[in-house]
């Protein structure tokens, strides 16, 4: 387009041109909304999957490790496009908002109305605080490295505490069948899932035993480290994906 414009020769759009440019904005926004609702939600469902579907999968070890690690992928890619080309620091928030819309639609219509699960059993987690922070770091720093290190880390570290107000109450202890369970475990026991036996849950399996009962901070910091790498990887995927190479040939 106007790659060779300089400050001196720049003329802002007015009149019809400005109106068309604005209409183009709305067109892209609407398309982006549906694209990210569909694609990011699908990506998230196939990778985070059960950790986000079920309240009795949201453990303190794997849930805070897996969810931000997968959740930072699309935000990084979209930030790469929107920030590099337009200086729009809203890629992460836009992606995560679309993800939230998609997951809520799926939980209400697919899980509740279609498969009869109570919505509280399949309530999604939120990544919005993490996404807001990531966008703000990118805008202030204007640096991939700083955003990857500080934004990526914060994206992971903020996840568990920002979701505890939603899911903390599902961890109250309950006595059932001569054993101690959480309310979340009771959901898993009571509301029958034929294809999801209890043993499939990956709850605190691994070798973090050395650190006793502080699995969450360790998982969060592990996730933070991995998120810095994942962010960088997906930033470059986003840049590689956003090309007009093929359009030029038309």
């Amino acid at each position: 387009m106007s790659a060779n414009l300089s400050t001196g020769t720049f003329r802002p759009y007015t009149g019809e041109k400005a109106r068309i440019a604005r209409a183009y904005d709305y067109l892209v926004l609407v398309l982006a909304l549906f694209l990210f609702i569909g694609s990011f939600h699908l990506h998230f469902a196939l990778t985070v999957g059960d950790w986000d579907f079920w309240v009795d999968w949201k453990d303190r070890q794997w849930w805070p490790l897996v969810t931000p690690l997968i959740g930072i992928t699309f935000p990084a890619a979209v930030q790469a496009v929107l920030w590099t080309n337009f200086r729009l620091p809203l890629g992460a928030t836009l992606c995560v908002a679309c993800l939230s819309i998609g997951t809520w639609i799926a939980r209400i219509f697919a899980y509740h109305y279609w498969n009869f699960f109570p919505i509280n059993m399949v309530m999604p987690s939120t990544l919005l605080p993490s996404a807001l922070f990531l966008d703000a770091v990118l805008m202030i720093s204007n640096s991939l490295t700083i955003t990857a290190i500080f934004g990526g880390s914060a994206f992971a570290l903020l996840f568990y505490p920002s979701n505890w107000p939603i899911f903390g109450m599902f961890h109250l202890p309950v006595e059932a069948g001569n054993s101690q369970l959480t309310v979340a475990d009771m959901f898993g026991f009571q509301y029958i899932r034929t294809g999801m036996p209890e043993y499939l849950r990956i709850i605190e399996r691994g070798t973090l035993r050395t650190y006793g009962q502080i699995a969450t901070p360790l998982s969060a910091f592990c996730s933070a480290l991995l998120c810095t790498l994942m962010y960088t990887l997906w930033w470059h995927i986003g840049k590689w994906f956003a090309t007009t190479r093929y359009l030029n040939r038309i």
């Binding site: 790659a3 759009y13 183009y24 904005d25 337009f86 200086r87 809203l90």
Partner: peptide
């Protein structure tokens, strides 16, 4: 952010 002109205008301004 959305209340302001977005893609084409910002692209031109950035490259200017």
């Amino acid at each position: 952010w959305v209340r302001r002109p977005l893609f084409i205008v910002r692209y031109r301004m950035l490259h200017a």
